[in-house]
């Protein structure tokens, strides 16, 4: 899958986007989702940090409304806003519920003939705050296999400073591609790694929530 905004080809169905806090992982992933959904992909955004309304506002600022959202925040903070056709709410503790709703959206895309689908899971680190790594691993094992079987592309954000090395190593087994983000003080850089592609480090900046990659 070509990502124009990054000027890279991604050849992995399940990509971990890892970097330190505040480097811009969420905005980075949202920009990728925005590009693909604006160009005809079906899009699902699983949010564990912002409510569905906040995520939808972000995309609508850039003229995109056609996105499905799984909101794992509202129910956790005891808000009982109702589900809609495109927004499903589930507690972050309910991994089965998250899994069922991702599948429900995939099934809808499949039955409508849409085969190009992008999914963002933002973020795995929040799930790891509530549940132990083995539980999250089992959940991701099922999810990454489903994504691969469908032929979709999924991007999972991970805060690298929040977890021990063992957890990060365990997570890396599940993903066949990684986008690493780094903050070098005066500039931010990224690279993409997979078994067959290894890009150079490239600079990027975020201006008004839009991603700009240095040539």
């Amino acid at each position: 899958m070509r990502i124009e905004i990054l000027n890279i080809d991604v050849d992995s169905n399940n990509v971990m986007v890892i970097g330190p806090p505040l480097v811009g992982k969420s905005i980075f992933v949202r920009n990728i989702v925005w590009e693909k959904v604006s160009n005809g992909f079906g899009g699902v955004y699983v949010t564990t940090k912002d409510t569905a309304e906040a995520v939808l506002d972000w995309f609508q600022r850039f003229n995109l409304s056609d996105i499905k959202i799984i909101d794992c925040v509202s129910k956790t903070i005891f808000s009982d806003a109702p589900d809609t056709e495109d927004i499903k709410r589930v507690s972050i503790m309910d991994l089965t519920g998250i899994s069922v709703r991702i599948n429900m959206f995939l099934e809808r895309f499949w039955k409508s003939g849409k085969r190009d689908v992008i999914i963002a899971f933002d973020s795995i680190s929040t799930v790891l705050m509530y549940l132990n790594p083995q539980t999250v691993f089992r959940f991701l094992h099922v999810l990454t296999n489903r994504i691969k079987s469908f032929g979709a592309f999924a991007f999972y954000t991970v805060d690298e400073d929040m977890h021990d090395e063992r957890t990060i190593a365990m997570l890396k087994q599940l993903f066949n591609g990684v986008i690493e983000l780094k903050d070098e003080g005066n500039r931010r850089i990224f690279r993409y790694l997979s078994p067959s592609i290894r890009t150079e480090w490239r600079g990027f900046s975020i201006v008004n929530d839009r991603l700009e990659v240095s040539s």
Binding site: S91, M93, D94
Partner: peptide, 11 residues
């Protein structure tokens, strides 16, 4: 209930 609040459960 271990995965949702009692209010969410009733809903």
């Amino acid at each position: 209930t271990s995965t949702m609040s009692p209010t969410s459960l009733r809903n």
